[in-house]
Amino acid sequence: MPSPRYTREIPNRYRLEAARCKGCDKLVFPARRVCPGCRGTEFETTELSRSGKVVTSTVIHVPPTDFLREAPYAMAIVETPEGARLMAQVVDCDPSSVLPGMEVALEFRLLRREGLSGILCYGHKGVPVT
C-alpha cells in the first residue's frame, strides 16, 4: 500500500468521514466527486457513527497472504444508523457467530502491515456489542 494512496484515504479510514450530497441528500461513503444518486458535485462533509448492524457476512478461511495469521476471520457488510454501508472485519468474537442482524461497534484497529518493512495501515473493524 504505497504511502500516497494510503494518505489520501485517511479521512474515511481513520474518522469514517462521509459526504452528503447537497442536491439529493444521499449519503456517500467514502466521499466521492460525483453523487451516484443524482450526479451532483456539491457535498457536505459528515462523520459516520461508530456503530452499525450486520447486513450480510462470511468467515474467510482461505485468506490473502497478508492476512494469513488472522484466518479464519469474519467479514461483514455493516450498515450504520445513518444508512451508510461499509465492508469490515468483525473481531474479538467467534467468527461463526457474526450473522445478519448482529449489532457492532466500530473500533480503530491495525488492518494490515506491508510486510516487514512497509507501512502500517489502520482503519476500523466491527466488535460485537454485548
Binding site: 479510514r13 474467510i60 485468506p63 465492508m87 472485519q89
Partner: peptide, 8 residues
C-alpha cells in the same frame, strides 16, 4: 473499500 479490509 473491500480488498483493504481483507475480503477475497
Amino acid at each position: 473499500t473491500e480488498v483493504y479490509h481483507g475480503i477475497t
